[in-house]
Write a protein that binds this DNA or RNA. Structure first.
Lengths: 141, 141
DNA sequence: ACATACCTGACTAAAATGGTCAAGTTTAGA
DNA sequence: TCTAAACTTGACCATTTTAGTCAGGTATGT
């Protein structure tokens, strides 16, 4: 079980964005430089964040991205969902013969994964961008 | 973020084993049939479970595997650890220029992943095989 | 007009995943 | 003692996912 870097980058980029978007939109180029994330990759990520209305884009010179909601209203759940970083515990193959369906034992551990999923999602639902901002204020240069 | 089927199979197999090992050792062939898991794959998994002293093996005809501890003492943490199903949230590349080390911002989200890891591991540490057994008694045929 | 910045989609190398296959060794029981 | 059941080990492999890169765009402020 692991967290992919796409989800990680999304969070890092948004925290970065949240810090700097007070006055002007923030360009991906700046985020790329500050966070050490490939610009091309960032573009993919922000495309998804935009589709999910987490950020707004402003084109042209001096353009960039801006948060579309207050940091307090952007939960980690939203971010991960936007970039397809799902908490997949188990897919008991939907139509399969084996696994959850066919057998008498019926995927003994089914309940377990449900519980785990809830456990993790609760964590993400209770964390917002704002929490991360506060958390890191002292490390700001 | 996802749970691999290796970890899932390990748990399923051990629950199965725990149910049937009262008198005789349980052969992987039986588990394979009951749970619909490839025998060859089970062998890989049990090899690791044995190295981690979660099960014992008995060779020869009528041989098989037996739990090495009481179900109450086998936590999910132990199982996942045995089959290398780690909760990896983030590796801030150890010696890397980018990411956590070089930059002034210093991996803004570091604390977050630590918290998450603790959150998940707590869940696994508090779940034992016995919990799963009780949980599923009613579904037993 | 032109540089800056967003936008889009195709492509790809490398790693992880989810196994299979082959060739054993050990031991109970006929 | 012979043999079949069962564990043991390690190599191998196809597919999928990941983590990007590349190559083109399009929009817009100055």
């Amino acid at each position: 079980m692991k967290l992919t870097s796409k989800g990680r980058y999304a969070v890092m980029a948004l925290v970065d964005l949240a810090r700097f978007d007070n006055i002007n939109p923030v360009s991906l180029r700046d985020i790329s430089l500050r966070q050490g994330i490939s610009l091309d990759y960032l573009e993919q990520i922000f495309s998804k964040l935009k589709k999910n209305e987490i950020v707004k884009s402003i084109r042209g010179t001096q353009g960039g991205y801006v948060l579309n909601k207050s940091p307090n209203d952007i939960k980690l759940t939203n971010i991960f969902h936007a970039v397809d970083e799902k908490v997949k515990t188990v897919q008991c193959k939907k139509e399969s013969k084996k696994g959850c369906n066919g057998k008498a034992t019926k995927c003994i551990t089914h309940n377990l994964w449900d519980e785990l999923e809830i456990h993790i999602n609760t964590f993400f639902e209770n964390k917002s961008l704002k929490d991360l901002l506060n958390n890191n204020k002292e490390t700001r240069v």
